[in-house]
């Protein structure tokens, strides 16, 4: 750690290159982690609200949760976990200077992310079809706890889906960077940080899944 702070690193890697670009991968990663922690607090607030409502409306929450499609939920969990694997492998491939493999794995990660969203789309469509959406006549006539459950369900999985979309966008930028060699085996911190974001999205789902889909 001290070598990062002292500022004198005589044998630095940069001096070997003609251009002296200031680069500090460690700070970059710390910055990314700080951002991720604010994301955790954002979702943490929603989980807190979920806990409070669940305690207040235990029975209603249980009844409403039975209507969620556990199979799609489980399937989507497996998809996200696998996408986390391909993401990690993409970085590992980049570290070993295997550009083609890294690109293939990155595109696989994106494909899995899109697959997740498609499933989510069909899942939500089915719910809408049954009149289960915020403010719907059907839901307003239900007990208050069930109305709140579906509100939390749409808010939390919806915010999560937005994060998946943001992650996909980020990975598209990384794909372009890799193709243009802006991200390369000597400088892949941007790919690593994007990977961290992608794993965080997976991490949030790991908690959303049992709390919404597995209340049988």
């Amino acid at each position: 750690m001290s070598d990062y702070l002292s500022g004198n690193n005589p044998g630095s890697v940069q001096s070997e290159h003609e251009e002296h670009v200031h680069r500090d991968d460690m700070s970059s990663k710390i910055g990314m982690w700080l951002f991720l922690l604010t994301e955790v607090l954002l979702f943490g607030g929603l989980f807190l609200l979920y806990m409070a409502y669940r305690v207040k409306y235990t029975g209603n929450f249980h009844d409403a949760a039975l209507e969620l499609n556990m199979k799609i939920g489980t399937f989507n969990t497996l998809i996200l976990i696998t996408s986390s694997l391909t993401m990690a492998l993409s970085i590992a491939a980049m570290q070993r200077a295997r550009k083609g493999l890294s690109i293939f794995l990155l595109v696989s990660t994106q494909a899995l992310g899109i697959f997740f969203l498609i499933n989510k789309f069909f899942e939500w469509s089915a719910k809408f079809h049954h009149g289960l959406y915020p403010g719907s006549e059907t839901l307003l006539n239900r007990p208050k706890g069930e109305y709140i459950f579906f509100g939390m369900y749409y808010a939390m999985t919806g915010l999560h889906a937005l994060h998946v979309i943001a992650g996909l966008t980020l990975l598209t930028f990384m794909l372009v960077f890799i193709i243009r060699n802006k991200v390369n085996p000597d400088n892949y911190i941007r790919l690593e940080n994007s990977g961290l974001y992608w794993h965080l999205v997976d991490l949030i789902w790991i908690f959303l899944f049992p709390l919404f889909y597995l209340m049988r």
Binding site: L85, L200, D202, I206, F207, P210
Partner: peptide, 16 residues
């Protein structure tokens, strides 16, 4: 929640 916590442990420590 326990299983979710164990899973996140693996994701944070190894994947992240």
């Amino acid at each position: 929640l326990l299983i979710a916590a164990i899973k996140s442990g693996f994701v944070i420590n190894i994947f992240m």
